[in-house]
Design a protein around this nucleic acid. Structure first.
Length: 442
RNA sequence: GCCUGGGUAGUAUAGCCAGGUCUAGUAUCGGCGGCUGUCGCCCGCCGGACCCGGGUUCAAAUCCCGGCCCAGGCGCCA
């Protein structure tokens, strides 16, 4: 009888993962851990579909050749229980997977309750609320696991790309003293009796850091207390930010489009199985991306029969209309200075517009950025024009007097990029534990 | 902040508009039994639900009012 890990090892059994069981292993003696994804009891034959994050495999038991303890284990097995099984890999033309493990023994490592609140096999659909309430069970569904395996590749590819470009990864504070940019509503926290806020962006810190490292990037969570309730807003999201000295908006746009193209190329290469599970056929986009100015966007809207007067921000309905003309990735540049944050550089020829851009995918805004103001006097003036108190930005403005190079940068919504890659339409699906206006748990 | 839609077994739904054989149907699920090639296994039996409170009515899952909870959209933004 094969009872424990040591004796299995002694008998020449090797540990494999469920996703590793392939026809090439035919005849090999293996043992593996996994979750009982599906159980099919045919009487004398007993099938378990064993699942882990990297895949599934079928384990087949023949009752007549099994010892009593293992028969008892089979009879008490519940879906989603963690089991350890051992046996021999064999090519199985009768099985859809083409290969299976002929089980010789099984041990229940951690038993799951009989009545699960959620169907991991997906036979019955679940609402978004139910999915998020039982998020770990939802995440075990191979299609959902895939999203986060892709996310892992996206993280890796972003870091790799930016490091090669000479960017240094930094971490800036997420608890801050003042509202950094105005605009977005912030979460107030008690900070030893003082008022503090959760950061809405690393903007001011990353600009200061270019005076040290020249090129910095940060991937971090940010917080917005906006009461938005849409499929593309959450109160805690991940932003990929860069800031670079001696670059202008055009330089950082190139960094952005090349990075996006590289990330998608890596996902296509490294996550074929996951893309297939999601039913997504993905192709790396061609660069450079299309660029249109804000003025051009207004003209296009006019042509599409939607008049919009100059100076206002492009609103959701406008962007939906534009998406009819511009498919895939494209940039909108030169927004009116008045509707951009105080730190954005006005165009030197025409200060009414700014050296700014948004990266769009159809009507979804993925990133925004631009050349930043580096002149302290101009920065002070812009703060006042936007109705902000220069006194509360004292420490920040000060830095501009100590040798501030011209610089530019952007912030990219990580989850929104992930939505584009996975073709999912609700941002909550691409966040492990999303936080929105009405959800704080799990 | 504003607007719209919705809450029926563990899950997903039918029923609601046109109140009455709804003792609330179906699928999945769970329990028991059967089955040697299942793979969304199959077959038989069993189990389990109308969000909360008030009102209208002979009669409420269904109509009305209030509450709670949820989904989506807008503004704003990533």
């Amino acid at each position: 009888m094969v009872e424990d890990r040591a004796s299995i090892a002694g008998l020449g059994y090797e540990q494999v993962r469920p996703g590793m069981v392939r026809p090439e292993l035919d005849g090999k003696k293996v043992w593996l851990y996994g979750w009982a994804h599906e159980i099919r009891d045919l009487g004398s034959l007993f099938f378990i579909v064993l699942r882990s994050w990297d895949g599934i495999c079928q384990v087949t038991f023949s009752r007549s050749t099994l010892e009593k303890v293992y028969l008892e284990a089979l009879d008490s097995l519940t879906r989603e229980s963690v089991v350890r099984v051992w046996g021999t890999v064999r090519v199985a033309p009768q099985s859809r997977l083409g290969v299976e493990v002929k089980g010789e023994g099984i041990e229940i490592v951690a038993r799951a309750v009989e009545k699960l609140p959620y169907d991991v096999t997906g036979k019955v659909s679940a609402s978004m609320t139910t999915r998020l309430n039982y998020r770990v069970l939802d995440l075990r569904k191979p299609v959902n696991t895939s999203i986060f395996l892709i996310a892992d590749t996206v993280f890796e590819a972003i870091r790799e790309f930016l490091r090669v470009q000479g960017f240094i990864e930094v971490r800036t504070p997420k608890i801050i003293a003042t509202a950094t940019e105005g605009g977005a509503a912030l979460f107030k926290v008690d900070y030893f009796g003082k008022s503090a806020y959760l950061a809405q962006s690393p903007q001011l810190y990353k600009e200061e850091l270019v005076t040290v490292f020249e090129r910095v990037f940060e991937i971090a969570p940010y917080f917005r207390a906006e009461a938005s309730h849409t499929r593309r807003h959450v109160s805690e999201f991940t932003s990929v930010d860069i800031e670079a000295a001696f670059m202008n908006y055009e330089d950082v746009m190139r960094v952005l489009e090349e990075m996006v193209a590289y990330v998608i190329k890596r996902v296509v290469e490294d996550r074929r199985r996951e893309l297939e599970l999601l039913g997504v056929s993905l192709r790396p986009p061609k660069t450079p991306f299309k660029r249109i100015t804000y003025d051009q966007a207004l003209k296009d809207l006019e042509e599409l029969g939607h008049h919009k007067s100059w100076g206002g921000d492009l609103e959701t309905p406008d962007l939906r209309h534009l998406a009819k003309k511009y498919t895939g990735f494209y940039f909108i540049t030169h927004f009116p200075t008045a509707i951009k944050p105080f730190y954005i550089q006005p165009d030197s020829m025409n200060p009414q517009v700014s050296e700014s851009f948004d990266l769009m995918y159809q009507w979804l805004e993925l990133a925004s950025g631009g050349t930043r103001i580096s002149d302290p006097a101009l920065l002070r003036r812009r703060l006042e024009e936007q109705g902000l108190n220069p006194e509360s930005f004292k420490h920040h403005v000060e830095v501009y007097s100590y040798g501030m190079p011209f610089h530019a940068g952007w912030g990219l919504g990580f989850e929104r990029l992930l939505m584009v890659i996975t073709r999912l339409t609700n941002i909550r699906e691409v966040i492990l534990y999303p936080r929105d206006r009405f959800r704080l748990t799990p």
